[in-house]
Amino acid sequence: MSRTSGGRTAPSVRGPARWAVVLGIVAGALILFFHWMVFFYVPTEASMGIVQRIFYVHVPAAWAGEMAFGIAAFCGGMYLWLGDERLDVAAETAAEGGMVFFTAALIAGPLWAKVAWGTYWTWEPRLTFSLLLWMIFLGYFLVRASIANKEQARRLSAIVAIVGALDIPLIHVSVNWLRSLHPEPVVLRQDGPQLDGRMLATLMVGLLAFTVVFFALFALRYGVGLLERTRPTDAPPEPDGSGLMMEES
């Protein structure tokens, strides 16, 4: 802990900064290796052809997004319980990362679907639950931005994150439990992975690369978030009253 010019106690950001640098270097190397695998190493799938390579970015992006939303919900829940502001910073950071990676997955998936299904979008269960998850976390940021009382905004957004995370299992079981057009899992199956060895290796490297990229940026953003809570910025002062900002006319 150190003292800032405003006299407030600032949490140490050396730890997150160090992690951001180390993970950033590892992430850069993994990204390069991952793209070499996708474009030069992995064989082209027999029935779908070149467009199947979207799978290697879609699945890791969806994984990183869902993991981030899960972390946001966990940290949000812990913030509700313990009231530690650092947990709220972590929840907000993870929710941001979740939006980033899940948006990438929601764009990559329809690009594959246009070639495979002939349409960018269809309201089948997994796609619908996925869009719902994205919209719930969009609501998370709307709640934080629209409520003037910061404490109230943080508590309500934590509840939104927990509700959003409840949708993640539904996304996964929807393929098996409901009539779904989305391809069934090819890795997490009871009878083992149904992928060629090189395809599985490429997917695993992709999952690792996206995970490390997420945690590198998470560490960086978390450090910035901690500094923002303790240092004065040019942002408007926080009002004392509670309620929505737009309620006065």
Binding site: I54, V100, V115
Partner: peptide
Amino acid sequence: PYWHVFIAYAVAWLVVLGWVVHIARR
């Protein structure tokens, strides 16, 4: 389909780059 693959990867990394820019601005 080559364009679909290219756009999928480009958009994914552009969105991540957008987050990096967002953090840098903060």
